[in-house]
Design a protein around this nucleic acid. Structure first.
Lengths: 227, 227
DNA sequence: GTCTATATTATGATAGAC
DNA sequence: GTCTATCATAATATAGAC
């Protein structure tokens, strides 16, 4: 289970929290956790409205109904909020992809279903998705833990591609390194266009997300069975 | 000829400039024009280093060696600088695409050459390209004149697609509205990935820009000749 | 066309009272 | 855990001297 609260704390506080989590959490700890989630929810709203760069502690505090210094009881810095949003977003996106793949046959169908589920999550979580994949805040560098989640995302896609090859749905080129880059380029293209041109349309509407299905139908041509 | 200086001025000043341009410009006007270009060059540098959102009059003035109030003799606001960069960038990108198409046979070859030239320009002008196609500054809205240039870009691509259909290189679906969206999604995907993950690599290096050629080879499969 | 001085507003962050 | 007060810094923009 991914424990978000640990992100907001110094190592010592983190240790205390881990101890407390062994016993059932008391009212105070639960209230604190709720506030942390509330802060992150508001932060997402602010980023969606003002741009990912437009996130500010002052605005979050304003909307939460407290004064900026009080926020420092929950997060040690603005970058720590970005960090929490980044890590939480990665986990949510990973879970979205996993969820999308469930119930489909492994291989090409699973790959496409997973990518679409991830795409839908990105569109519904525009600001965080930009933070994850477009790097719009030059001074923000994701923490090393974040790297592990990326690796897992890639491994899932690599596995689905390998299954598709094994099933004879895609040719052997889909097992090569470049296949992942090609596939990710397709989904990123769709999302970039949707974000920039139709940020408020749901998946399936507008001019760009419908091209996803077309692009996915091209995969067999991109990795032909015989050559 | 695209006259950039007009962007920086009020209508009255613009009229004066147009008059002056009829006669050969004197030393003072030339010097002023040079300063305007210098300001825009510095602005591009700042955006590249600090992010498109990180552009500030103060930083431009610092690098130019003047005080911020002096900048207002050249541009009436920060947004006016974004506006000038946007319009100039659009024209440069359009010219890059046109240049790339020259000397190639019309149709699919021209389309691909034009897109690649545009992509190369975007990669070499990352910050401005982001401003053009990713809308990273929520409070900035391009002026109406900018729209006309976008339309021309689209028309050129539409024409190239139509030529390719006429030559039997692509099927009739390439004449439909969605074809442009599909093609632009491909190039935007490549550039998004390059910008986010390998911002300093030139075109052709790294993991993503090489996929451009692969993607272009898929176009005949995307718009099949017979069905 | 440059400057100084200033108005206004905003930011992230800390100290310390309660 | 909240606040006030404060620090340090930065931003856009204007007025007006030179």
């Amino acid at each position: 289970m991914f424990k978000l609260s640990l992100l907001a704390m110094t190592p010592e506080e983190g240790a205390a929290e881990r101890e407390a989590a062994a016993a059932p959490p008391d009212r105070r700890a639960r209230r604190r956790q709720e506030t942390i989630y509330e802060i992150l929810d508001i932060a997402r709203d602010v980023m969606t409205e003002e741009g990912v760069n437009g996130l500010s502690l002052a605005e979050v505090a304003r909307r939460l109904g407290i004064k900026p210094p009080s926020l420092y009881k929950y997060f040690p810095s603005l970058m720590a909020i970005y960090d929490a949003l980044f890590l939480e977003g990665q986990h949510q996106n990973l879970e979205a992809m996993r969820g999308g793949m469930q119930g489909t046959e492994s291989g090409l169908d699973a790959l496409i279903a997973g990518l679409e589920a991830s795409g839908r999550w990105c569109l519904a979580n525009r600001a965080v998705a930009e933070l994850l994949f477009w790097r719009p805040v030059p001074s923000f560098h994701p923490s090393p833990e974040a790297f592990a989640v990326s690796v897992e995302m890639v491994e899932i896609q690599r596995g689905a591609l390998a299954d598709a090859v094994a099933k004879g749905q895609l040719g052997p080129a889909a097992n090569e390194e470049g296949a992942i880059y090609l596939v990710s380029t397709l989904i990123v293209g769709v999302l970039s266009q949707a974000f920039a041109n139709e940020p408020d349309l749901p998946w399936g509407d507008g001019r760009f997300t419908p091209t996803f299905a077309t692009l996915m139908r091209l995969l067999p041509a991109a990795f032909p069975l015989d050559q």
